[in-house]
Design a binder for these strands. Structure first.
Lengths: 325, 325
DNA sequence: GTGAAAGCGCTAACAT
DNA sequence: ATGTTAGCGCTTTCAC
């Protein structure tokens, strides 16, 4: 920066000004400085800038898994908006593990991000403490709570599952099975669905709990298992993800079972393939883009000094009825 | 840090040592410093550390799209290894756009990362210049070139597509159609497949070029279109992604077409569902984990001072023959 | 509109 | 094993 200044015949400070607030520098000087920047191939050092100004223009983002479309697509929407505002994203995966999350939070906070985005509202006590001490905006996504660290953007997992149960009951299904991936959010939906279904006097709800990742193949196996146990007529299967639901459709077709007559299926997520399966999936749609955008907006508002604005933002869900239930 | 030192009765430098190289500090002092750290809730400032040491422990990673499982899963493997080594990831998406890539490179380099991972080997001239000037290790993934900026880890898109064409020819298919997503890597595979197929005297290869994202629904539409045009017996469809291939299977089933008899399908990617479709997908498997890991390893070797080690690393591909072709 | 001086919170080099 | 000194490359403040 000093060298650029020498070339342009000004001091180092003026170069700094020309780069960060060009309007404070005379047009003529600005021109000379820009020429000098191009000549030298000068690349500003944002590390030094961050240290001097204590604004890093970095946002920390923590997601359980980047390969899970739920999180990657909301993160995409989030980071698109942040990038437009001149922020960059530091990313970590937590693998649904509070301890890994805690370690990641510590690591990220040491880099002095201007804000942090977390997935979920359950964090270790130490994590909460660090976040509070950091004194930066924090947004928690994908869940709702009355007591966010700072603010949260999500929807009620329980309400979504209950809506699915209500649809199933209203459609006359009297036996229900849940097919659930091994993560806490999915399990909460499973429990809420089962509770609602059983409260209506139709239970017990059968549970099939599967591994951490929701795949088509596991969905197929789940139906195969159900059939072997003896599939009762009027059964509806509530899946923690559209992948499972799709697997059930494929297995049903392979076995000559009619959907929804022999077995009905409700998915979760309304992923891109949900309209294109045979039959199309009845599922719970989450607007993942809107979720990510709302999270970004919440942070930007906080930067602008509206810290009190809607600490809890419910983006809702939509039960989309198609052919499978 | 100074305050921690005061509490522990040592100078600020000793605290710095205790934190970064504990073995250089006496056990007793170390204990006192650790106590003081816990008491104060001190969080180290990695920004200042990076400025002073000119090592940021940050890695920049640029991918076309984070929602695309090809890139997200290799990125996951990459960042897992990097995290183990104490590095954190700054992420940007380029949307397959060289200009966006150039802007992202400039933005990331100003943060002085210790290394940078790029997707693909085609970059703007300005981007190449910046990367070279940065003087840090650079790894380009998902493609191979004789002239990497620094080193590359990938496979030959052309060779993979040619292997698929050879399989199709050997299996006796005499008409071929390509179904391709709108990105440059997919298009190179399409062209290589068509060239090989036509060179064998069986052409022309029909092309169906689709939008940027590969979905099941678009795959269905592609087959619908083909059937309307008149599907010739002995046709094989080469897809740029397993999603398209799966869509073709679904549409074929809906129309009562037998696979591979009435129409054969070759996918790309060997995604998790490829074994579970009906019939299972014949596809090209890329070990995305291995790719990400190799990229991380290449950078780590460079950090350790083996700059000359294998500038070009071919992770290969595997043609997996299942039921669909 | 521009410059001089101070300092952000660390690490590196050297000294003890 | 520990301390002293000098900076890393910027931004901030204050002066002109």
């Amino acid at each position: 920066m000093a060298e650029v200044g020498r070339l342009a015949g000004v001091s180092q400070v003026t170069v700094s000004r020309a780069l960060s607030s060009p309007e404070k520098v005379s047009p003529e000087t600005l021109r000379r400085i820009r020429d000098a920047v191009n000549q030298t191939g000068y690349v500003p050092n944002a590390v030094a800038g961050a240290l001097a100004s204590s604004r890093s223009k970095l946002i920390a983002a923590l997601v359980p898994s980047i390969t899970n479309i739920f999180y990657s697509s909301s993160l995409q929407a989030f980071s698109d908006i942040m990038r437009e505002q001149g922020y960059q994203i530091m990313l970590s995966e937590t693998g649904f593990d509070p301890e890994r999350e805690e370690a990641a939070i510590a690591a990220h906070l040491s880099r002095r991000p201007d804000a942090i985005m977390l997935t979920g509202v359950r964090h270790s006590a130490a994590a909460r403490r660090m976040l509070l001490n950091a004194g930066i905006p924090v947004v928690e996504v994908w869940d709702l709570t009355e007591t966010p660290v700072d603010c949260c953007v999500g929807f009620s997992q329980g309400a979504a599952a209950e809506a699915a149960a209500d649809l199933a009951l209203a459609s006359g299904y009297r036996h229900a099975v849940t097919v659930t991936a091994g993560n806490e959010r999915a399990q909460r939906r499973r429990d809420a669905f089962a509770a609602r279904f059983e409260t209506a006097g139709h239970g017990p709800v059968e549970r099939i709990d599967l591994g951490p990742s929701a795949t088509l193949g596991l969905g197929r196996e789940a139906l195969a298992q159900l059939v072997e146990r003896g599939l009762r007529p009027g059964t509806v299967v509530f899946c923690s993800s559209d992948q499972f639901a799709h697997g059930i459709l494929v297995e049903a077709a392979a076995r000559g079972l009619a959907v929804p007559k022999d077995v009905a299926v409700i998915g979760f997520g309304d992923q891109d393939f949900a309209t294109a399966t045979e039959p199309a999936l009845t599922t719970i749609r989450i607007d993942r883009q809107a979720l990510g955008q709302a999270a970004a907006t919440a942070l930007i508002q906080r930067f602008a000094g509206f810290p009190g604005l809607d600490p809890v933002h419910d983006v809702g869900f939509e039960l989309v009825r198609r052919g499978s239930a």
